[in-house]
Design a protein around this nucleic acid. Structure first.
Length: 278
DNA sequence: AAATGGTGCAACCGCAGAGGG
DNA sequence: TCCCTCTGCGGTTGCACCATT
């Protein structure tokens, strides 16, 4: 007996989601919460399979998603985490608030991979592409095996481990100092990570993810520019659409705590823009 | 202006693991 | 312990958009 399909293939719609479907899903999730994805399409009145609904929600409709390209510091973090974790996109995404595994995976495949190759770095191993032609003697001290030397100044790692230095178990102050090779914003982000012991232990193993209060992170300015780029955020049609929907329903009517100050600012901006358009 | 090729992203597919009966 | 269901993950595909010819 073969595996049952995740949904009844007959009568199940596939392909791009319409605004109407989005609204239905958003309304359902906001009023009923996330539970039993298989039941969601039926309860929400959608002709989609539960999987598709979950994917749409997590990758596109979630209110806490950031929009737009990854910042330099985020990209740098992705590279380092990939060196450490490999293609475990969900784990990598968990370290980038507001980013999804799919988004990071796509960005990796379309942008970062090419960048690394251009820099002479194998995007899979994070080692120099022409390893055999490089003199190991001239290569690096352990510090230089850190991501930053890998990326900015390709050199063969002294060991075959994928260690980047930054997230090693023995992360020490001296190693943290190595982070100083980073430029401003990235440095701050890494420092935040380095100082979070629970987070580090999680990254280094398969421990349960710590409960991280991202709002307490000392993020670089650029990582927080979400709030200062509200107009840009609000210009995203879908985002704007659904936020406006929320407006129509009245956010507080949902009894949600998911709207932080930034999102409330977005709503306010949307409201303003909406009035302007009218 | 039309054709072609490249790029980026949303969405799908199949598999693996967790959890419950 | 086995079986089944459900969820989540990573790889892949399909398509819209844009640039180039």
């Amino acid at each position: 007996m073969g595996r049952q399909p995740c949904c009844d293939k007959l009568g199940v719609k596939k392909g791009p989601w319409t605004a109407e479907e989005d609204n239905k899903l958003i309304n359902f999730i906001l009023t009923s919460g996330q539970c039993c994805w298989r039941a969601v399409p039926k309860l929400a009145g959608l002709r989609r399979c539960g999987k598709s609904c979950r994917l749409r929600w997590t990758n596109y409709l979630r209110p806490d998603l950031k929009r737009g390209l990854l910042t330099e510091s985020e990209e740098q973090l992705v590279i380092d985490l990939h060196a450490r974790l490999g293609n475990r996109w969900s784990k990598i995404a968990a370290r980038l608030p507001g980013r999804t595994d799919n988004e990071i995976k796509n960005h990796w495949n379309t942008h970062i991979k090419k960048k690394l190759i251009k820099r002479g770095i194998d995007p899979v191993t994070h080692e120099p592409l022409q390893k055999e032609h490089q003199d190991i003697e001239t290569s690096s001290s352990p510090q230089e095996n850190s991501l930053h030397s890998e990326v900015n100044n390709p050199s063969p790692p002294a060991e075959s481990t994928k260690s980047t230095g930054i997230f090693d178990e023995n992360t020490s102050s001296s190693q943290k100092e190595n982070c100083s090779t980073l430029n401003g914003e990235t440095e701050k982000l890494f420092e935040s990570l380095c100082e979070d012991e629970k987070l580090l232990s999680y990254l280094l193993g398969d421990n349960e993810p710590p409960l991280v209060d991202f709002t307490s992170w000392e993020l670089p300015n650029n990582a927080q520019n979400f709030g200062t780029n509200i107009d840009a955020f609000a210009s995203s049609d879908n985002c704007a659409t659904w936020l406006l929907d929320c407006q129509d329903f009245g956010v507080h009517d949902f009894g949600l705590d998911c709207f932080n100050e930034v999102e409330m600012s977005v709503l306010e901006t949307l409201e303003t823009n909406n009035k302007k358009q009218k």
